[in-house]
């Protein structure tokens, strides 16, 4: 085959490949989101974290503002200490509260962060005092009943 034709096809292939990578990076994934590497770490203690995992998102008003970095068991308080790294462009009052929530019925668990009213802001190393533990079962049942009720009309 002529050299030019090969070059053309290799060009098409390589371009398609890199377009595929870009598509994955920006359209499918969230490479445009903030980088979690930079940011500050705050901790919170929970009675029960349910199925929370490291790298789970921290959301405030539905927006991802950080990720769970570390989960350890605190021997003194017999509670779970969760460290989360928040993006440095996000600022929260010191009296903000955190709760463990579930995204949809089958979704993964994440930490919801609700802003308080304090004028002072959370800084690196702070601990959030107001926490609400995972309420997995109740939420599941609630959602289930709700969906059953809303579907029973059309589906059966």
């Amino acid at each position: 085959m002529a050299r030019g034709t090969i070059d053309l096809w290799v060009g098409i292939f390589v371009t398609a490949g890199f377009l595929g990578l870009l598509f994955l990076a920006f359209k499918v994934g969230s490479a445009t989101n903030f980088s979690v590497a930079e940011g500050y770490v705050v901790t919170a203690e929970f009675d029960n974290i349910g199925g929370l995992k490291t790298k789970a998102p921290v959301k405030s008003a539905g927006v991802v503002v950080g990720r769970i970095e570390k989960i350890v068991f605190n021997n003194r308080t017999l509670r779970a200490t969760v460290s989360m790294r928040l993006g440095k462009q996000f600022e929260f009052p010191r009296d903000s509260s955190v709760s463990i929530l579930t995204a949809g019925l089958l979704g993964e668990q994440y930490v919801g962060l609700d802003g308080g009213g304090d004028v002072e802001l959370l800084v690196d190393g702070d601990q959030i005092v107001l926490t609400q533990s995972a309420m997995v079962l109740e939420k599941v049942i609630g959602q289930f009943l709700f969906n059953k009720a809303s579907e029973s009309g059309g589906d059966k």
Partner: peptide
Amino acid sequence: MPLLAAIFSAMGI
């Protein structure tokens, strides 16, 4: 290979 895998995933999505 990685380019083909990326194209495969992109096409699948």
